[in-house]
Each structure stands twice: as C-alpha cells, then as structure tokens.
C-alpha cells in the first residue's frame, strides 16, 4: 500500500462523498444489526451457562430403601467423575420446601395425615454436561432399582438449546445475507468510481503505471468505506446497549432472573471491525478484478 494509493483512495471518497456516505451507512447498519444479534446471543448463552451450572438430577427413593443401602448408593454416585455433589433430601425437608415454594400451600399441607412426598437424592452435575444428550446419558448411569423415579430438567434445557440454536442459525443466515448485501454495495460503489475515473486509469497506463498501481487505490477505498462503516457501528452499539438492552433488562430482568446484561467482549468488537474491513476489501477487490482495471490497452 503506497502513500499514493492511500491519498488517492481518500480523495476518491471525497469526490464521491454522497455515495461514500450511503455505503458507510449501509456497512454500519449491517454491523449494528449483527452486533445487536450478537448481544442477544451472547447474553442468552451466558444465561444458559449460568443455568447449566445448576444441572441437577433428582432421584426419588422408594420408601423401602434402608439407611445402609442409601449411604452405599450416595457414596457410589459421589464417586462418579461427572458428579459434583450429592445431597439427601428427606421427606420432611421436601414437604417443607414445597410449602415454601407455593404461597398458602403450607396450611394445606399441614392438614395432611401423611407426607406424600418421597425422599430424594439431588445430584449436581458438572457444568460441562449441560447439553441435554449428555445429561440424559449420565442420568441413565445414575439409575438404580432403589429409585422410584428420576427427574432432570431435560425438557426446558432442550427447548432452550433448540431456541438458542435457531437464533444462532438465523443470525448466521441473516448476517451472511446482510454482509453479502453490504459487499455488493461496496462493489457497486467501487465500480462507479472506476467508471468515473476511466480517463485517469488510461493516463496511468500511458505513463507506465502497473495494474496494481491502478487497482490499489480502489481496494484501499473499499477497505476505508468498510472500516469507516465498522467504526460508526462500534460507536452506535454501546448506545444501543445502554439505551435499549439495559432498559429492556430493567423491565424483564426480574422476570428472567438474568443477572446483568453484558456488552460485547473486546474480541467480538474487534471481529466486527475486521468484518467491516473484509466487506470493503472483498467488495472492492472483486470490482477491480471484474472491471479489469489496469489491464494494458
């Protein structure tokens, strides 16, 4: 990249400032949308991670299981590498918890003659096991004849994973389409710039300019448009985070018990900037190749 190419590229942007602003705006919009999607996905993934840390399997004990057998099973399960801890919940404790969880329930329960709830072992699994298939796999290995029933929050974990997977996929598809559209616009902008500088390109050839001497300013121009679009997006995203996401969290946070909504990490922001540059580079590069810029005539 010669100083001439850089000077010529920025001069080109000034010469076509309206088109340049439109292109920068489009790249910025695409990256803001992409960034917003990433904000949602990052935070939902974070949420899933936090929930995932609580992957727990409840093993409900038959009534006839004696203390000795119970301790043996508890020790066995505790020794499994996937397990963090095993806690025994007695029938009384289960009843107490149930009463606390539902308002007014304790009075109803007090009227009961006997405790209908079984005692259980609550097995906490390692967070790496949060994928539904692996939880199911571990659960099957936990299974013992002494257990009347087993329960793990399989259904919602699965649903949440499916939802997040769909969200990621749609972000990927939409992101690719939007990036392609931005690339196409850069390509068109550069093609118009090439067209308007036909005479200049002819003269460059006549005075001995090589192909890449003629082409580089256009490629630099495309990268500058993409890079500037990315900078605009990086300036807008924190505002969007502050005024939209944090506000949204304030009203929904309690409901979802999400904790704080986090802004995009620095590597992701760098990634967005690189994506802007790449869109500009590819758009401009394909344009100079297709327009045959600098080919000797």
């Amino acid at each position: 990249m010669t100083p001439y190419a850089v000077r010529r590229a920025f001069k080109g942007i000034v010469e076509h400032r309206f088109l340049a602003v439109a292109t920068i705006g489009t790249v910025a919009t695409v990256l803001i949308l992409g960034g917003a999607f990433l904000l949602v996905i990052t935070n939902l993934s974070g949420l899933l991670d936090r929930w995932g840390q609580d992957v727990q399997v409840s093993c409900y004990l038959r009534e006839d299981v004696g203390d000795e057998a119970l301790f043996a099973i508890k020790a066995e399960i505790e020794a499994m590498p996937e397990v963090i801890s095993v806690r025994y919940v007695s029938q009384d404790e289960a009843l107490e918890r149930f009463g606390e969880a539902v308002d007014g329930m304790d009075r109803i329960l007090a009227d009961l003659d006997s405790n209908p709830l079984p005692a259980s072992l609550e097995v906490r699994l390692r967070p790496e096991l949060q994928q539904p298939a692996r939880v199911a796999d571990v659960a099957s290995r936990l299974s013992r004849p002494e257990f009347e029933d087993m329960d793990w929050s399989q259904e919602w974990v699965e649903r949440f994973h499916t939802f997040l997977g769909l969200l990621r996929l749609s972000a990927l598809v939409l992101g690719t389409l939007l990036l392609a559209a931005a690339m196409f616009l850069v390509n068109t902008t550069i093609r118009l710039a090439i067209h308007s500088r036909r005479d200049e390109l002819e003269i460059i050839q006549l005075v001995g300019g090589t192909r890449w001497f003629a082409r580089t300013p256009f490629v630099v121009e495309g990268m500058a448009l993409g890079g500037l679009g990315a900078l605009v997006a990086l300036a807008v995203l924190p505002l969007l985070y502050k005024y939209a996401f944090v506000q949204l969290q304030a009203s929904l946070g309690m409901l979802l018990s999400m904790g704080t909504v986090e802004f995009l990490p620095v590597p992701t922001l760098l990634g967005l900037f690189v994506a802007g540059l790449a869109v500009g580079f590819v758009g401009a590069f394909t344009s100079v190749i297709r327009s045959n810029v600098g080919t000797v005539s």
């Binding site: 005479d199 006549l206 001995g208 090589t210 080919t295």
Partner: peptide
C-alpha cells in the same frame, strides 16, 4: 508481455493532440 508494458512506457514520454490531462 502485457505485464512488462508499463516498464517500457516508463522509458517513453507520450504527448497527445488532446493533451490527456487530469482535469481535477
């Protein structure tokens, strides 16, 4: 070779009837 043409032209100066200057 077409890629060598620029190097030839660097050793030639060409003047045209219509000047071929860059107006900007």
């Amino acid at each position: 070779h077409p890629r060598s043409v620029p190097y030839l032209r660097r050793n030639l100066g060409v003047v045209f009837q219509d000047f071929k200057l860059l107006p900007q």
